[in-house]
Simulated assay, not measured.
Amino acid sequence: METKAATSFEQLDTPSLLLDLDIMETNLREIAAFANQQGIGWRPHIKTHKCVEIARKQIEYGACGITVAKLSEAEVMAKAGITDILIAYPLSSPLKLRKLASLLPLAKITLAVDDPKQAERIHQCLEHTASAIDVWIKVDTGLHRCGVEPGKETVALAKEISKYPKLRLQGLFTHAGHSYAASSVQEIERIGIYEGQAIAESAEWCEKEGIPIRHRSVGSTPTFRISGKQPGITEVRPGNAVFFDAIQVGLGVATFEQCALRLLSSVVSLRPQERVVLDTGSKSLSLDQGAHGNATVKGFGHVVDHPELTLQRLSEEHGIAAVARHTNLALADRVQIIPNHACTVVNLFDSYVLHRKGTVVGEWRIDARGKVQ
Rank of each mutant, 00 (worst) to 15 (best):
P222Y: 10
E187L: 09
P307G: 00
D13W: 04
A132P: 06
C146K: 00
V218W: 00
A130V: 04
G358Y: 13
L169C: 04
L104S: 12
H175P: 03
C146Q: 00
G171C: 07
V267T: 05
G196Y: 03
V236W: 05
E120Q: 12
I338C: 14
A200L: 08
T141S: 01
P231S: 03
I109S: 07
I213E: 12
G281Q: 07
K96D: 09
R271T: 06
K47I: 04
P105N: 15
G142Q: 10
V113P: 11
G192I: 10
A35F: 01
K283R: 10
A254V: 14
G252E: 09
N36L: 02
T234V: 09
G239I: 13
L104Y: 05
V242Q: 02
R121W: 13
I40C: 07
E127N: 13
E257N: 15
L106N: 00
A112W: 00
L172N: 01
H306G: 01
E195Q: 12
Q230K: 14
V297M: 04
V277R: 11
I193R: 12
R237C: 06
A254R: 11
V276I: 08
N240R: 09
V268R: 10
A112M: 01
D333H: 14
P238H: 07
V361E: 08
C146D: 00
S183N: 03
A332Y: 02
F300E: 15
L126E: 10
L354H: 08
A254M: 06
Y194M: 06
I87Y: 04
D367P: 07
T110E: 03
G41Q: 04
E25K: 14
K57M: 13
K70N: 05
H215N: 13
C64N: 09
E363N: 14
S284A: 00
A80H: 15
H144K: 10
E127W: 11
F256Q: 14
R313L: 14
S284L: 00
Q336T: 13
I31T: 03
V185P: 02
E317K: 03
V346C: 03
G142Y: 01
E120G: 11
G250I: 15
G142S: 12
I85D: 07
L331W: 14
V242K: 01
D13I: 08
E316P: 00
Y61K: 13
I122E: 09
I133R: 07
I59T: 15
G171P: 00
Y194V: 03
A182C: 07
V335W: 01
V267D: 05
P339R: 02
H49K: 08
Q312H: 08
H318Q: 12
Y352A: 04
A78M: 11
M1G: 12
A69I: 08
L12Y: 15
T48A: 14
A181P: 15
V52H: 09
Q248I: 06
L278F: 12
L287D: 06
H45Y: 05
I133W: 04
D115Y: 04
G228T: 06
S266R: 07
A101P: 04
A101Y: 12
S184T: 04
Q289C: 03
V236P: 06
P165V: 05
Q258R: 15
T110N: 03
K117A: 05
L270Q: 07
K138Q: 02
L314W: 08
S286V: 12
